[in-house]
Amino acid sequence: MSAPERIPPRSVTSVDLLAEGELTVRGRIREASNAALFCTVAYEGQEASCVYKPVAGERPLWDFPDGTLAEREVAAYEVSEATGWGLVPPTVLRDGPHGEGMVQLWIEATPDAELLALVDGEEPGPGWKTIGFAEVGEGRTALLVHADDERLRRMAVLDAVINNADRKGGHLLPTGAGRLYGIDHGVTFNAENKLRTLLWGWAGEPLTAEAVDVLKGLQSALGTSGALAERLGGLITAVELDATRARVDELLESGRHPQPSGEWPAIPWPPV
C-alpha cells in the first residue's frame, strides 16, 4: 500500500497572520492621538507583535468623516504594495477585542540620526535637503533638513499620491536591515489638497525615472477595471478615489515633485 500523500504546510504570510490570528491586547500606546493598542497576534504556530487601532477609539476630525481612519490606513498599505516599494507595514481591517479596527505589523525601529537634523546656517550641507527654518529656543532658529535619501524620496512620492496630511518625523521607522517604513496614515486620501509633510526637499524637482514608472503602474491599477481601484473602492469614497487618480495624473503630467500649495500648512506640527 502506498504511503498517504503529504500535503506541505501552507505558507502563512504576514497579512494572513494579522487577518486570521488571535489578537491579544498587551497594552496601550499612550503617545498616539487616537486609541492605539499594542498587541500580539498568533496563528498556525506563528506569532508577531502588532498595533490595533479600533474605530471606536478614533477622535472626530472636522475634515475627515467619522470612523474612517482605519480604512484609510489600510488603503495606504494597498497603494504602497502596488508601488512595489513596500513602504507601509502589512495592514488589515478586521474585528478585534474592541470592535472593527486597523491591525498593522509592529516594526522595531532603529534610531537613525542621518534622516533628519537641525543645522546652523542657511544652506544644507552635502547629502541634505532643506525643509525650512525652525525655532530652537531663546530666539534662535536653525535649518531643519532631511537626508537626500532614496527611501525618503520614494516616501515623498507615496505621500503625494495618498495626500498624506501628517508626515511627521516620528512616523518614519528605519530598521536595522536598512528598510524604511511609514506609519500613521489615518489622515490620507482627502479629496482636497491636504499634503503636509517634512519631505519637501525635492519640491519642484523632476521625478526620478523609477518614480515615473511606478506612477504609470499606479495609473493603470487605478483604472476603472484595475485591481487596486477595486480594493480601494471598499475603503475610501468614490470622490476620494477619483481624486487619487487625479493626483497620479497630475504628477505624471508635471513630471515633478509637488510644491506646497499655500492653502494648507505645509509642515505638520509638531514636526517630529
Score class of each variant (00 low, 15 high):
residue 182 G to C: 09
residue 133 F to D: 06
residue 126 P to Y: 02
residue 1 M to Y: 03
residue 169 G to E: 00
residue 52 Y to Q: 08
residue 45 G to S: 07
residue 195 L to V: 13
residue 91 T to N: 09
residue 41 V to A: 07
residue 190 N to K: 10
residue 54 P to A: 05
residue 260 P to T: 07
residue 104 Q to M: 15
residue 136 V to H: 05
residue 14 S to R: 08
residue 239 V to I: 07
residue 270 P to F: 01
residue 238 A to T: 10
residue 229 A to K: 12
residue 185 H to K: 10
residue 159 D to R: 06
residue 121 G to N: 05
residue 246 A to K: 04
residue 193 N to V: 04
residue 176 G to P: 10
residue 159 D to Y: 00
residue 39 C to P: 11
residue 62 W to D: 15
residue 258 P to S: 09
residue 118 L to Q: 12
residue 97 P to V: 03
residue 82 A to F: 02
residue 134 A to I: 06
residue 67 G to A: 08
residue 85 W to K: 14
residue 8 P to W: 00
residue 179 R to M: 03
residue 12 V to L: 14
residue 105 L to Y: 02
residue 33 S to L: 03
residue 197 T to D: 02
residue 89 P to A: 14
residue 172 L to P: 10
residue 39 C to G: 10
residue 133 F to Y: 11
residue 202 W to G: 15
residue 209 A to W: 06
residue 33 S to R: 13
residue 56 A to E: 03
residue 173 L to E: 03
residue 125 G to D: 01
residue 271 P to E: 01
residue 13 T to Y: 10
residue 142 A to C: 07
residue 112 D to A: 14
residue 76 A to K: 05
residue 210 E to L: 11
residue 200 W to T: 14
residue 149 D to C: 09
residue 117 A to H: 02
residue 239 V to Y: 08
residue 142 A to Q: 14
residue 255 G to A: 13
residue 47 E to K: 10
residue 137 G to L: 06
residue 193 N to E: 12
residue 261 S to V: 07
residue 158 L to I: 08
residue 206 P to H: 07
residue 53 K to M: 04
residue 157 V to K: 12
residue 123 E to K: 15
residue 88 V to W: 09
residue 259 Q to N: 09
residue 137 G to S: 08
residue 270 P to D: 00
residue 226 G to T: 06
residue 60 P to R: 00
residue 4 P to E: 01
residue 64 F to D: 06
residue 121 G to M: 07
residue 57 G to E: 00
residue 241 L to P: 13
residue 259 Q to C: 15
residue 178 G to Y: 00
residue 71 E to W: 04
residue 26 R to S: 12
residue 170 G to Y: 03
residue 75 A to C: 11
residue 99 G to I: 00
residue 219 Q to L: 08
residue 117 A to C: 10
residue 149 D to Q: 05
residue 36 A to D: 01
residue 141 T to F: 11
residue 47 E to C: 12
residue 208 T to W: 04
residue 3 A to F: 07
residue 253 E to Q: 13
residue 268 P to D: 02
residue 159 D to A: 11
residue 65 P to M: 05
residue 174 P to I: 03
residue 10 R to P: 03
residue 167 R to K: 14
residue 189 F to T: 02
residue 68 T to H: 04
residue 130 T to Q: 11
residue 106 W to Y: 15
residue 161 V to S: 10
residue 105 L to T: 05
residue 246 A to N: 06
residue 201 G to D: 10
residue 262 G to T: 03
residue 215 L to Q: 02
residue 48 A to E: 12
residue 161 V to Y: 03
residue 47 E to A: 14
residue 263 E to L: 13
residue 80 S to E: 05
residue 109 A to M: 05
residue 54 P to G: 08
residue 84 G to V: 04
residue 97 P to C: 11
residue 109 A to V: 02
residue 240 E to W: 05
residue 264 W to P: 06
residue 134 A to H: 09
residue 61 L to C: 11
residue 99 G to P: 06
residue 213 D to I: 04
residue 262 G to S: 05
residue 73 E to H: 11
residue 264 W to R: 15
residue 58 E to K: 04
residue 215 L to C: 09
residue 153 R to C: 06
residue 165 A to K: 05
residue 253 E to W: 01
residue 51 V to S: 08
residue 48 A to N: 07
residue 206 P to F: 05
residue 19 A to W: 01
